[in-house]
Design a protein around this nucleic acid. Sequence first.
DNA 1: TGAGTAATTCACATATTCATATTATGTATT
DNA 2: AATACATAATATGAATATGTGAATTACTCA
Lengths: 130, 130
Amino acid sequence: MDTSVSHQDGLTPSEPASTSSLPVFDKDICAEDMDKMAANAMRASNFLKAISHEGRLMILCHLASGEKSVTELEELLSARQAAVSQQLSRLRLEGLVTPRRDGKTIYYSLTDDRPKQIMEVVYDLFCRQK
Amino acid sequence: MDTSVSHQDGLTPSEPASTSSLPVFDKDICAEDMDKMAANAMRASNFLKAISHEGRLMILCHLASGEKSVTELEELLSARQAAVSQQLSRLRLEGLVTPRRDGKTIYYSLTDDRPKQIMEVVYDLFCRQK
DNA sequence: TGAGTAATTCACATATTCATATTATGTATT
DNA sequence: AATACATAATATGAATATGTGAATTACTCA
């Protein structure tokens, strides 16, 4: 089989990539791969920490359906403006949201679809009743 | 269209569920749905907090390919036994991993495939080189 | 320019998380 | 039973995260 990907990052998919492959390890993982894995894990955990907050999760969820102003988010979350702003700044730092100024108000939208990809699964696990 | 799902939990899929629907909101979200959403967000953020830790993420990643003993994980992570044990206890509390005793050693495995589902996406975003 | 609005930033108090060290528990061996 | 080993549980302090209110910036309009 194709061995060209076995050392790409210490992880090797167990199934074809087409069906959203599971992250499964080789049994004989080497030190080099371990380092790559640790680096990947750090980036991933930073991302996950950014979204693993009740308020930020709801912000991202609301932004998934289109851009919103800070005031709108403030109302949607029933939270203080300063708190919302700080949560947005955290998401901004992580590059997950992008501000757009229009006169007095600032509108936020999702920078890319990374949050959506995660939230699809989160939605399935926690929001859809089984 | 089908309106029977519009109030299930404050979220409404924008596409057929078959293709992993996006969590998108109705424009006229009501207070009741907001409460449900907040409750879902809290459960989801607890789950995400549990996995958004470099060490715990790597543990889950290793467990994805089969059960491992604490000592094995200790070596795989190059971490102290106490640290690994504490991270495992956190994952145990959250119900993500399950211990199985065999003599002196205790083997851990994933309780269900929730972590795997998230990690599939995380793997795609952070471990696969594009 | 001055007042009003939207959003950010700051400073503080509190709460949570984390790593380490220590102690406790359960199991196998003798 | 006594010992050794693998793992778990607890305690402590340091670091980090969070919400709040006050001060500040950026913009609009009269």
